[in-house]
């Protein structure tokens, strides 16, 4: 029940991000969540979209290399301390987090977190047994 994430290698060059976003827009793909990892020379644009396969096709046609990775999406309450509890649950369960990014849900009082971890299956098990909901692609796309 994992979620597909697109990662795109982007050179630090003004206008580049705008071009890439334009291609995604033109393909009629809706972006659900995104984050950018930045270094001195390049960035990695990570995207959760409603139509991953179509986005990959459009981006590849533009000549970009795209990597598809499965990530975990969890839903936590939008209140002080909820994120701390969720992370502690993962940490206690022996799951390492590579990176994460969060956004608010349209569902009132809920926040969502995309997690890139060392072991997806284990993360999901740990979260669920700690009472934390994980989401599938459908949940995310129809939010």
């Amino acid at each position: 029940m994992f979620v597909k994430q697109l990662s795109i290698f982007v050179q630090n060059q003004s206008g580049r991000l705008s071009e890439i976003a334009g291609v995604i827009a033109k393909a009629g793909v809706d972006i659900r969540a995104l984050s950018i990892a930045d270094t001195t020379n390049f960035g990695i644009l990570r995207l959760i979209v409603d139509k991953p396969d179509e986005a990959v096709k459009a981006l590849k046609e533009m000549g970009l290399t795209v990597k598809l990775t499965e990530v975990v999406a969890m839903e936590v309450d939008d209140r002080p301390g909820a994120f701390a509890e969720a992370i502690k649950t993962l940490s206690d369960g022996g799951v390492s987090v590579e990176y994460l990014y969060a956004f608010l849900s349209r569902a009132p009082g809920k926040a969502r977190v995309i997690l890139r971890v060392d072991d997806n299956a284990k993360a999901e098990k740990v979260l669920n047994s700690g009472g934390i909901t994980t989401l599938n692609e459908k949940d995310l796309y129809l939010m």
Partner: peptide, 13 residues
């Protein structure tokens, strides 16, 4: 960069 070297993490690249 090509299919063999692209990654979602800065560390891998």
């Amino acid at each position: 960069i090509n299919e063999n070297t692209v990654s979602d993490t800065v560390r891998d690249i």
